[in-house]
Design a binder for these strands. Structure first.
Lengths: 212, 212
DNA sequence: GTCTATAAACAGATAGAC
DNA sequence: GTCTATCTGTTTATAGAC
């Protein structure tokens, strides 16, 4: 990987930033290479110098997001604490990461749906899959630990993972629809803080008031 | 609206079925009119006889799904019961509806993300929006009733709606990724039943074991 | 590393015959 | 209601100069 020497952002990174924004808004098939090139201020052909195909550019975009999230979550979970504390911290941090860059959640969810048309064996895709596995393995470990300690209810772990993804990632990918439901921008700092509180309260108490 | 006289499915409906399947797999921009036409066994031009534009065909596809879901959920909620009972029934039925037709959840979630490129004022889109509003209003009412009765915890209703959508709809839209997480097809009847149990347990108890 | 020019395929949509 | 033929613009990708 070639790095530019100084503080200036490399052409490669500027392409990836523009691509993320556009892929988030219109998906893989909805964005043309020429449109990304225009946004960056390069010609179409220059993009093909940095990325062999459109599919590889997309895979690199997804990989960049997942690697960053994996890095930060790993660092946070390493700080220790009870399973409940780690789970709460995981939720807070993931929400912060997805709220800071609105394009993240959308690109990630869309990438899930677009797995069929992005099937080829691209290095970046394999790295993205690895990052995904690491992220999921770490939450699984927290849940398993919590269950062993009696801190966390004995739920089915895979289905719990799916619920956590649905609750956190879907919300920040829901765009105008989400805005309309909550009556404000889902990325408004006040609404982000509210989301953290509501998600954690959901995890701690569920919705239904216990009769016991 | 023109209806064929007998049991045979109209060309319009055959187009909508093929369109749903394809839009679910590759999204709005990823599917060509000619591909849909080929699947149905008609020429490209024949599709333009039934639907003025590609955007209208897509809107009609989404509208058909939402109207069916709205109809069934309305019927179910009308059967009465406590707020908790109605909420549980709502979850069970929505999961059944999304599990019965794998394309449904994907088309719906993708439509959320593709709101930008489908902005025009199409009749079918307005009807789809109305159905969505009715569906959400009905769950909101259940939640509000339950809170008034002390059956349901005093949570923020919009954020709770988002969580419910994330937990139920995302799961059935997650495709191969979801399959890999749960270690089986998410549409396998056993896994669907498990999803119902896990979601309801989540709603009733949360994840964390209460210390009180 | 960036460019212009171009290839070859495909998109959505329309005209008009039957 | 379905068809063939066609228009116009756009797509990904490549060749080759600088």
């Amino acid at each position: 990987m070639v790095r530019t020497s100084a503080a200036e952002v490399s052409a490669r990174d500027r392409i990836l930033e523009a691509a993320e924004e556009l892929f988030a808004r219109r998906g893989y098939a909805g964005v043309g290479i020429s449109e990304i090139a225009e946004t960056v201020g390069l010609s179409k052909s220059s993009l093909f110098h940095h990325f062999r195909t459109k599919a590889q550019l997309h895979a690199a975009t997804v990989e960049r997001i997942l690697s960053e999230i994996d890095l930060q979550l790993t660092r946070s979970l390493a700080q220790g604490g009870s399973a409940t504390e780690r789970l709460d911290r995981w939720v807070d941090l993931l929400i912060d990461l997805l709220a800071r860059t609105p394009a993240h959640a959308r690109v990630l969810l869309r990438a899930l749906f677009e797995d069929e048309e992005l099937a080829g064996d691209i290095d970046e895709r394999r790295e993205a899959d690895d990052a995904t596995r690491r992220i999921l393995q770490q939450v699984s470990n927290v849940l398993r630990d919590g269950m062993a300690q009696g801190e966390i209810r004995a739920a089915n772990i895979p289905h719990t993972l799916q619920s956590l993804i649905g609750i956190v990632v879907y919300h920040f990918a829901s765009g105008d629809f989400g805005d309309e439901i909550v009556g404000a921008s889902i990325f408004d700092p006040r609404e982000v803080e509210r989301r953290k509180r509501e998600v954690k309260a959901f995890l701690h108490h569920g919705l239904v008031v216990s009769k016991s």
